[in-house]
């Protein structure tokens, strides 16, 4: 396992495990993140995992008051601590990842760009849905918005460019395609994605402090097709 450390300003250090999107590197990122959960040093404020990096935010004042002598700067001390932590980190073979099922009502009013995606790729709408449901999806990271997953593994045959004129309002739960990526909008936001459907599942629930987001980095996703009626029922049921 290779890693390098880089400062992000005067209160954070970025750990880089590689510079390309790969399941292996991302698995290392997840391992480091869960080890940080176990470690939880008192000088750590929080951490943000991404595709190939974990960024650790620290409290320089706490470190200066409790950990270092007069001449040592907080970053140098953190560099030492994190290096030691990483040198003892072992990548374990983990069991199969959690698979989260996301019900989606494809097309129609809930997925107004489905026909465009089909036309663009010379497929029927049914074929786009079929291929979207059969992707081998991995959540690489959560970012951009609460619970917004960066998902890899979509069939490139259904890729579609972003819209030239982004929509001002995309409803929460919308499933979209941008380039070779697919994603689900957890909140109403503006955006340029091609919208192919919508899920009634709540992607972000702030009242659940332990797990406020439906998806976590490292999850596998299975999209399941539902009818408009099922969508309405699940939505009302607060799914």
């Amino acid at each position: 396992m290779d890693w390098t450390l880089h400062p992000l300003g005067d209160q954070a250090v970025l750990i880089e495990f590689g510079n390309e999107i790969s399941e292996e590197i991302n698995h290392t990122v997840q391992t480091a993140a869960s080890s940080l959960d176990d470690w939880q040093p008192e000088w750590m404020v929080e951490y943000i995992p991404a595709f190939t990096t974990v960024t650790l935010f620290y409290d320089p004042l706490y470190i200066a008051n409790h950990k270092t002598s007069q001449n040592q700067l907080p970053y140098d001390w953190v560099h030492q601590q994190v290096s030691e932590f990483l040198s003892t980190l072992t990548i374990k073979e983990t069991g199969p990842a959690r698979t989260v099922e996301i019900p989606v009502c494809y097309g129609g009013d809930l997925g107004p760009d489905l026909s465009y995606v089909a036309e663009k790729n010379g497929l029927t709408e049914e074929e786009v849905i079929e291929r979207h449901m059969n992707g081998n999806y991995l959540v690489y990271m959560i970012g951009f918005a609460p619970g917004f997953p960066y998902i890899g593994g979509m069939d490139p045959a259904i890729a579609a460019p972003r819209r030239k004129d982004p929509r001002l309002k995309i409803p929460a739960g919308t499933v979209g395609i941008a380039g070779a990526q697919t994603g689900v909008y957890p909140l109403e936001t503006p955006g340029g994605w091609q919208l192919i459907g919508r899920t009634p599942s709540k992607m972000f629930d702030p009242s659940n402090e332990e797990a406020p987001t439906l998806l976590q980095a490292g999850d596998r996703i299975q999209f399941r097709r539902i009818t408009e009626e099922e969508y309405e029922n699940l939505k009302e049921g607060g799914a």
């Binding site: 209160q11 390309e20 999107i21 943000i48 595709f51 990096t53 960024t55 935010f57 951009f144």
Partner: peptide, 8 residues
């Protein structure tokens, strides 16, 4: 590749 950003 997207990665963490900070205040400032």
């Amino acid at each position: 590749l997207s990665e963490a950003v900070a205040f400032g």
